[in-house]
Amino acid sequence: MTSHRSTQSMKPATAAKKLGVYLEATPAEFREGVVTRDELNALQTDPPAWLRELRKNGPHPRPVVAARLGTSISGLARGGITEPLTTDQIEALKENPPEWLVRERATQSEVREESKRLKARRDAEAAADAAGPDA
């Protein structure tokens, strides 16, 4: 008995998200079709010129913008950034950060520190539990 392996496919929006690019900036043939898992893998391992260009210069989707600015997607929204930004726009914000960006970066830093603290506490509790009640 042989098993027939079906080809996995995804919507262009899902593929764009996995590739870290803004869907509306991709070529029409990408937006209008479906993308198979094999095609996605090929795009990731050997990106065509349009994909390299989008990754380098944008416009970038909000998750990429947030990561490059060191803040959260919610922080972008609070700062009034609702549209995709290009690499040049992101760099301009980094060079001369507005008050909202400074505030959001500080908040993000606090969140990371608190996450580290909680993880260390959980790890210590797990180690104490593993050592048993006599330890």
Rank of each mutant, 00 (worst) to 15 (best):
A120N: 12
R105W: 09
Q89C: 05
L118A: 08
E29P: 06
L118S: 08
R78D: 08
E95R: 15
S115V: 04
N96G: 04
A130L: 11
Y22E: 15
P84M: 06
K11Y: 01
A15T: 03
P59N: 02
L101D: 10
A130H: 06
S6C: 09
N57E: 14
P12L: 06
D38N: 04
K18G: 02
P63L: 02
R105E: 04
Q8G: 12
Y22A: 11
E32S: 15
T36F: 00
G75D: 02
K56Y: 09
T14W: 02
R105L: 07
T45E: 15
R121C: 08
A77R: 15
D123T: 05
S6L: 14
I81D: 05
E99D: 13
A127L: 13
A25S: 12
E32Y: 11
S72T: 13
L101G: 08
T14C: 03
V34M: 08
R37N: 00
H4Q: 15
P61Q: 04
N41A: 04
D123E: 14
P84R: 07
A128L: 09
R31G: 07
S9N: 13
K17T: 11
E91P: 00
R31C: 08
T86P: 03
R121F: 11
R117W: 05
V111S: 11
T107L: 13
R121L: 14
T36E: 01
R55A: 08
V64K: 02
E53R: 13
T107F: 12
A28F: 09
D46Q: 10
R68N: 03
P27I: 09
R31A: 07
A126E: 15
I90N: 00
S3D: 14
A124V: 07
A131Q: 09
L101T: 09
S72C: 02
S6G: 10
L93S: 05
R37Q: 05
L118R: 13
D38A: 13
H60I: 04
Y22C: 09
G20I: 02
G132H: 03
A126S: 15
N96S: 12
M1A: 15
D88M: 04
E95S: 13
R55S: 08
I73T: 10
L43I: 01
P48Q: 03
R37E: 04
A128V: 06
A120Y: 04
K18P: 01
A13V: 07
W50R: 04
L23K: 05
D134W: 15
A28R: 14
